[in-house]
C-alpha cells in the first residue's frame, strides 16, 4: 500500500495559442501509491485533463509545452522518455478511460477487435488467442462474448463505456486514469459503471486516478483527494481530511454548492464569480477575488502547507487545522 508507483513533481504545462499563453497546469505535485485511488476534483478548465494527458504522454504538441517538472513512473521520467518507450507503457502499464464513450470507439471496427488490438500490441499472442482474451474482457465488464463481432453503433452509451473499460484493463495496467468516466452517462448507468470500476480495481489491484467534478463520485471511490483550481492543487489529503476537515475556502464552496447540503426549499449557494482568465493568472492567491474569507494576507504568493498529517492546503488562513474540527 505504501509503494509509490507514480510521482508527479512540480509539473507545469502551458498551451501556446494565438490568444496568448494559457497556463493550464501550474506547479502540480502528487504521488499515487500502489492500489489506491486518487481523486482529482475541480471545475471545468481547471487543468485536470491536461494533467492526465501529461501522464499518458499524449499532450497535443504543439500547442502544449511542458515548462517544468517531471513525471516518474517506475523510476522513469515519462516527460523525457522517447515515443517508442511511451508506446510500450500506454494501454499496457498506464491506461486511460475517456470522458465521452459515444465517440471514443472506432465506428468502423468490431468492438471485440478494438479490445484484441490492444492485447496484440502488448502481448505476443496469436490472433485467435487475442480474440479469446478479448472475449474474456467483454465478459469481465458484463457484456456477453457473442457480441464480439458487433459495431459500436449497436451499443448504448453505458455499454460503450464498458467496452472502453475493457480496453483499458485488457493488459492489466498498474495505473488507470479515468477522466470523467461517468459524466456523459445518466445517473443509473453512472452507478453501474462506478460499481464495475470498483470491483475491477479490487480484483486487479490497479491504482486509479479518477478525474471528476462530482464530489459524490469522489466520496464513493477515492482514498485520497486533490482539489484543483486554476491549474493548482489548492487542497490535498485523505478523503476524510478533505471531506470532514475542509480547510480551503474553495473546497468548502464546492461542498456548499451541492444541492444536498442546503436544506430543501432554500437557494443553492454557488461560488460567486468565475475562474481567473488562464492567459493572465494573478501572482497572488488565484481564488482571492471569489473568496469569502479574503484578507490583506492573501495578496502574496501562497505555498501549499501541511496543516497536519499530510493534509496540504494552499491558503494563508485555512478554515481549520487537522485535529480541530470546524463544523
Amino acid at each position: 500500500m505504501s509503494e509509490v508507483i507514480l510521482s508527479v513533481k512540480n509539473l507545469s504545462v502551458e498551451y501556446r495559442v494565438e490568444e496568448g499563453i494559457v497556463k493550464a497546469v501550474n506547479d502540480v505535485s502528487f504521488d499515487v501509491k500502489s492500489g489506491e485511488t486518487l481523486g482529482l476534483v475541480g471545475e471545468t478548465g481547471a487543468g485536470k485533463t491536461t494533467i492526465a494527458l501529461s501522464i499518458m504522454g499524449l499532450l497535443p504538441v504543439p500547442p502544449a509545452v511542458v515548462t517544468q517538472g517531471e513525471i516518474l513512473f517506475e523510476g522513469e521520467n515519462i516527460l523525457a522518455a522517447n515515443e517508442k518507450y511511451l508506446r510500450t507503457l500506454r494501454g499496457n502499464k498506464i491506461s486511460m478511460i475517456f470522458q465521452d464513450p459515444m465517440s471514443a470507439l472506432n465506428p468502423s471496427t468490431y468492438v471485440g477487435d478494438q479490445i484484441s488490438e490492444v492485447i496484440m500490441l502488448h502481448n505476443k499472442v496469436s490472433k485467435d488467442k487475442a480474440r479469446e482474451m478479448a472475449e474474456e474482457c467483454l465478459e469481465m465488464v458484463g457484456i456477453p462474448k457473442n457480441r464480439y463481432a458487433e459495431y459500436p453503433h449497436k451499443f448504448s452509451g453505458g455499454m460503450k463505456q464498458r467496452v472502453i473499460i475493457a480496453i483499458a484493463l485488457a493488459c492489466n495496467p498498474n495505473l488507470l486514469i479515468a477522466d470523467e468516466p461517468t459524466t456523459a452517462l445518466d445517473v443509473t448507468i453512472q452507478a453501474q459503471i462506478l460499481e464495475l470500476m470498483e470491483q475491477l480495481k479490487e480484483k486487479k489491484g490497479t491504482s486509479n486516478i479518477l478525474i471528476t467534478h462530482d464530489l459524490g463520485v469522489i466520496a464513493k471511490m477515492c482514498d485520497r483527494v486533490a482539489v484543483i483550481y486554476a491549474g493548482e492543487i489548492v487542497e490535498m489529503g485523505t478523503l476524510r481530511q478533505v471531506f470532514k476537515n475542509t480547510a480551503h475556502p474553495y473546497t468548502k464552496g464546492l461542498f456548499d454548492a451541492l444541492p444536498g447540503n442546503s436544506l430543501s426549499g432554500k437557494r443553492l449557494k454557488p461560488i460567486k464569480g468565475s475562474m481567473p482568465d488562464p492567459t493572465s493568472l494573478p501572482e497572488n492567491c488565484k481564488f482571492a477575488n471569489r473568496c469569502f474569507n479574503k484578507s490583506d494576507k492573501c495578496d502574496q504568493r501562497i505555498k501549499l502547507v501541511d496543516i497536519g498529517d499530510g493534509h496540504l492546503v494552499r491558503c494563508v488562513s485555512p478554515l481549520c487545522s487537522e485535529g480541530v474540527k470546524s463544523h
Binding site: M56, R87, G91, D100, A104, E117, L121, A168
Partner: peptide, 14 residues
Amino acid sequence: REDYIRTARAKGQS
C-alpha cells in the same frame, strides 16, 4: 480530431 484516434493512441498504437 476524433476521440477514437486518441483512444488508439492511448492503446500504444504506432
